[in-house]
Design a protein around this nucleic acid. Structure first.
Length: 560
RNA sequence: GCCGGCGUAGCUCAACAGGUAGAGCAGCGCACUUGUAAUGCGCGGGUUGGGGGUUCGAGUCCCUCCGUCGGCUCCA
C-alpha cells in the first residue's frame, strides 16, 4: 500500500505502518488531504503492483547505511526511527522501485497478495504523541482469499447492525440529545427498566457479600478534591461556586465513603468495611472521545470501597475477583482478558507502597489461577489496578470490572483504625467495580445480545396480542395476571393484522408473544410464540407463568 | 482537544453542473375485525444543525460555532 501511495503521491513521507489484529495501517505525511474517494484509487494502484508481481527482497544493512538511504529520500520519520534503534543492523525490504524499513517477514512477491481492502482514513499523531504532528492514517485489511475477506467484512456489518447507539434508539432504551448535551444519557422507560433490573440485582448481590449500601451527593466542596489530590492532578472535573464557596461535581465517590469511615473511631474489629454505592459521577471528557454509552460525561458506577488492614487486603481482593467473575458469567460473559497495571509516570505515594500493592494484586490473581498480563505504567495515579476485559458474542473486547489498590487516599485523608496493639494504623483502601459503569455495561450488553436480552433483563418480557377487538378483554386479563406475578407484560391492541403485531414485537425483540383469539378464549388457553419463532398452542396460563418465572429466576442466557 | 468525513421531516434516504424541498416508514384520521415477520385510502409534518458571508437567487459555494461519525490521545 505504501508503494501505491508513493506512486500516487510522490511527496508522501512514510511514517509507520504495522500489521494489527485484523489488518494493517500506514501513517503518511501527505500535503494533500486524503478523502474517502482516494481509497479506491490507491486500491487500483495496489492491484497494479500486485499484477506486476514484483519480487520482495530482504536486505540487512548497517544502521548508519540505512539512515543515509532514507535521508537521501528525505524520509524524516524513518530517519528519526532509525536514530533511536539500538541494533547495529536493520532490515530493509524492497519491491520494485520501493523500499522500506521493516522487521518483516514479508511475502516473497507482490503477486502473492490475494484479497485486500482499504477500510478507512483517520488522523493519528506521529508516535501517538499529542504534541507531535498529525499524520494521515489509512486502515486496511488483507486475507488469503476473497471468501475470508468477505467473511470479515460481513462481521463488520454485523457489528454495525448491533451498534448500541442504533439499537438504543430503535428499542427505545435511551437517547443522547444535543439539547441535553453531549455525553449525557437520558434513559427512556424501557432503558430505565433494564437499568433498574441491573441495579436491584447488584444491590442484592452486594448485600449478600457483606457490602453496605451508601449514598452520597453529586457535588462536594472544592477543598475535598484538594485533599484527595484530584485538583493537583488536574482531574477533568466541573467546578462552580455557591455563595462564594467552590464546589466540584464528583468524578468519583471515594471522598464521601472516606467521610463515612471517618464519622467515628474505627477499631480493627470493624474491618473490613465495605461501602457500596451506585454512584453517579461526571467527568469532563474531551469531546472527541465520547462514544454512545461506552464513553460519556455522566455515568453511574457500581462502585465500592473496601477499607481493611494490610493483612486482610489479599483476601478482600480475592473476594472482589471472584465476585466480579461470578456476576459477569451471569450476564453471559465467560471469556476474559486480565491486565495488571503498574505505576504510571505521574503518581502519588511512595515507591514502597506501590510495590506492596502491586505484589498483593499479583498474588490474588495467581491464587485465583487467572492468566494476566502486565500493563506497564498504566495504573491510576493513586494505585495499581486490575482491569478485566470481556469478550462478547462477536469476539470483541470490552472494558469491564476494575479493582484498584489505594495506599494514598487513606493517608491523605488521615484515616486510621485502632489496632489490637491499641496503636493507630492507616487502613488499606480498595476501589472496585463489578460491571464498571452501568452506561457502558448496558452498551456492551446491547451489542453482545444484539438487543435480544435474556428474559430476566428484557424491558418487556411478554406482549399479548389479541387477534380482534373482541379478544381485548381476555388479553387484558392475561396481562393483569402476568403483571401481578411481576412479569413485565404489555398488550398491543392496535387494530392491525396479527402478522403486523408479530412483526412489531419481533422488531422490539420481545422474548415472548402471547396470541389469543377465538380458539384460546373459548378454551381458556393461550398460544405462545417466542422471539426465535417457536409456536406453541393451547397452553395453560398458570403453566406459562410458572415457566416464565423459572426462566427469569434462572437468569438463563438465550442465544441472540 | 487534534486530523478527516458528515449534518435535509421522529427514523432511513432523495433533490442534474447554485433556480425558493420530495419519498418510504412512523404519527394522526377513516375504512377493515383480522390467526403467526408490513391491510387499504387520506391528512398533517421541514425557517435543510445555529450564525454570518458570496450571489439576482444557497440544501447546494465560503467562514465560523454546535453536534455527530472514523481514528489519534485519554478512559469506567
Amino acid at each position: 500500500m505504501a508503494q501505491a501511495v508513493k506512486r500516487l503521491f510522490p511527496d508522501a513521507k512514510l511514517a509507520i505502518g504495522p500489521a494489527i489484529e485484523d489488518g494493517f495501517y500506514y501513517d503518511f505525511d501527505i500535503p494533500k488531504k486524503l478523502t474517502p474517494e482516494d481509497l479506491p484509487r490507491i486500491e487500483d494502484e495496489m492491484n497494479r503492483i500486485i499484477s506486476e508481481d514484483l519480487p520482495i527482497e530482504r536486505r540487512e544493512v548497517r544502521r548508519e547505511e540505512a539512515i543515509q538511504l532514507f535521508r537521501n529520500k528525505s524520509e524524516r520519520f524513518k530517519v528519526e526511527m532509525l536514530e533511536e534503534i539500538d541494533d547495529e543492523r536493520v532490515t530493509i525490504y524492497s519491491q520494485g522501485e520501493f523500499f522500506d524499513l521493516c522487521r518483516g517477514p514479508h511475502l516473497s512477491r507482490t503477486g502473492r497478495v490475494r484479497a485486500f481492502k482499504l477500510l478507512s482514513l483517520a488522523g493519528a499523531y506521529w508516535r501517538g504523541d499529542e504534541s507531535r504532528e498529525m499524520l494521515q492514517r489509512i486502515y486496511g485489511t488483507a486475507f488469503d482469499s476473497e471468501k475470508e475477506l468477505n467473511h470479515y467484512l460481513g462481521a463488520r456489518e454485523e457489528a454495525l447492525r448491533r451498534d448500541h447507539r442504533k439499537l438504543g434508539v430503535e428499542l427505545e432504551l435511551f437517547s443522547i440529545r444535543d439539547e441535553i448535551g453531549p455525553g449525557l444519557v437520558i434513559y427512556h422507560p424501557k432503558g430505565a427498566v433494564l437499568r433498574t433490573v441491573i441495579e436491584d440485582f447488584l444491590k442484592k448481590e452486594h448485600a449478600k457479600r457483606g457490602y453496605q449500601l451508601v449514598i452520597s451527593p453529586h457535588i462536594m466542596r472544592r477543598d475535598i478534591w484538594a485533599t484527595s489530590g484530584h485538583l493537583q492532578m488536574e482531574y477533568p472535573m466541573y467546578f462552580f461556586e455557591i455563595e462564594g464557596q467552590g464546589y466540584g461535581i464528583k468524578p468519583m465517590n471515594c471522598p464521601a465513603h472516606i467521610m463515612i469511615y471517618k464519622s467515628r473511631t474505627r477499631g480493627h474489629r470493624d474491618l473490613p468495611l465495605r461501602f457500596f454505592e451506585l454512584g453517579t459521577v461526571y467527568r469532563h471528557e474531551r469531546s472527541g472521545v465520547l462514544h454512545g454509552l461506552l464513553r460519556v460525561r455522566g455515568f453511574t458506577q457500581d462502585d465500592a470501597h473496601i477499607f481493611c488492614t494490610m493483612e486482610q487486603s489479599e483476601e478482600e481482593i480475592n473476594n472482589c475477583i471472584s465476585f466480579a467473575f461470578e456476576i459477569q458469567r451471569i450476564f453471559g460473559f465467560d471469556t476474559f482478558r486480565i491486565a495488571l497495571s503498574t505505576r504510571p509516570e505521574h503518581f502519588v505515594g511512595t515507591h514502597e507502597d506501590w510495590e506492596k500493592a502491586t505484589e498483593t494484586l499479583k498474588k490474588a490473581l495467581e491464587s485465583n489461577e487467572l492468566d494476566y498480563f502486565i500493563d506497564e505504567g498504566e495504573g491510576v495515579f493513586y494505585g495499581p489496578k486490575i482491569d478485566v476485559k470481556l469478550r462478547d458474542a462477536l469476539g470483541r473486547w470490552w472494558q469491564g470490572p476494575t479493582i484498584q489498590f489505594d495506599f494514598n487516599l487513606p493517608r491523605r485523608f488521615g484515616m486510621a483504625y485502632v489496632g489490637a496493639d491499641n496503636e493507630e494504623h492507616t487502613p488499606v483502601m480498595i476501589h472496585r467495580t463489578v460491571l464498571g459503569s452501568l452506561e457502558r455495561y448496558i452498551g456492551i450488553l446491547i451489542e453482545h445480545y444484539a438487543g435480544a436480552f435474556p428474559l430476566w433483563l428484557a424491558p418487556v418480557q411478554v406482549v399479548v396480542l389479541p387477534i380482534a377487538d373482541r379478544h381485548v378483554t381476555y388479553a387484558s386479563e392475561i396481562v393483569g395476571k402476568l403483571r401481578s406475578r411481576g412479569i413485565r407484560a404489555e398488550i398491543n391492541q392496535e387494530r392491525e393484522t396479527t402478522a403486523n403485531k408479530i412483526r412489531k414485537a419481533w422488531q422490539m425483540k420481545i422474548p415472548y408473544m402471547i396470541i389469543v383469539g377465538d380458539n384460546e378464549q373459548n378454551s381458556n388457553t393461550l398460544s405462545v410464540r417466542s422471539l426465535s419463532g417457536k409456536d406453541e398452542r393451547g397452553l395453560d396460563l398458570k403453566q406459562v407463568i410458572d415457566d416464565l418465572l423459572d426462566e427469569i429466576e434462572s437468569k438463563a442466557i438465550r442465544k441472540a
